[in-house]
Design a protein around this nucleic acid. Structure first.
Lengths: 130, 130
DNA sequence: CGGCATCCCACGGGATACTG
DNA sequence: CAGTATCCCGTGGGATGCCG
């Protein structure tokens, strides 16, 4: 965030406050426990509710509902109800949702590539102050 | 970080569970309330504790400490103590921390570009259900 | 099948006060 | 200045049960 008042000693800092709040807002969605998993899973095509539930594995019904609602609210997925019996509901990524795939995958790649380094860093840190 | 779902009974899935947990683990760090803000702020060079606190704006002392400890633990920032009076502590991104900057910025760009679309999607969604 | 509704606990995180 | 220690509340999120 930009120092609105007291930043005399520091070099000029040019990232806009607007960026920060936007990034923060999106990242809090991205960073929640399940959203990314669901997005990456839906990247392979539309899926039904319980199908997603099984594939994600470990998510409660409640949280999957909330996660999907959140993604739907943000315009990242669509929810299609088939009024059959038993009912069937499909979830699918929107164009917006698909466009999010790339940056998320990049971050994922970074995470995957640097995981060993991070893990050793953690172990080292934990051992020094066990 | 939390152990996430170290679910042994999780059903097999096309994409490796290892990837998911790794990504999840990193993203939970990335996605927490302050880490990214601090990282982007430190991208411009080393900063002192209260300097960061002022620049971030709105973060409590406690949370800044916890956030910096977490980043340090993951090997993303270094903590340098100058045993002067009054004490001075500098925080600086490591190479690993700096390497995270790019993917985060990409996600940030995505967020910034699509923010209006997301906001209208939210308003629309909220209006349809009272 | 695909959800709400409810209960309930754990944890994130703010406010405040104290220390080296 | 740069923390640590407490307190305390809001929310994230699991478990369970009911309903169209």
């Amino acid at each position: 965030m930009k120092p609105a008042h007291t930043d005399v000693t520091a070099p000029p800092d040019q990232h806009l406050p607007g960026d920060c709040t936007a990034v923060s807002s999106i990242l809090s969605r991205i960073g929640d426990k399940w959203s990314v998993l669901v997005i990456m899973l839906l990247a392979n095509g539309p899926r039904r509710f319980n199908e997603i539930k099984r594939m994600v594995g470990g998510i409660s019904q409640r949280m999957l509902t909330l996660t999907l609602r959140g993604l739907e609210r943000d315009g990242l997925v669509t929810r299609t109800v088939f009024p059959t019996i038993p009912p069937r509901v499909d979830y699918e990524l929107t164009d917006l949702g698909r466009s999010l795939r790339r940056p998320v995958e990049n971050l994922g790649s970074w995470a995957f590539e640097n995981l060993p380094q991070i893990q050793t860093a953690r172990e080292k840190f934990d051992s020094t102050r066990e």
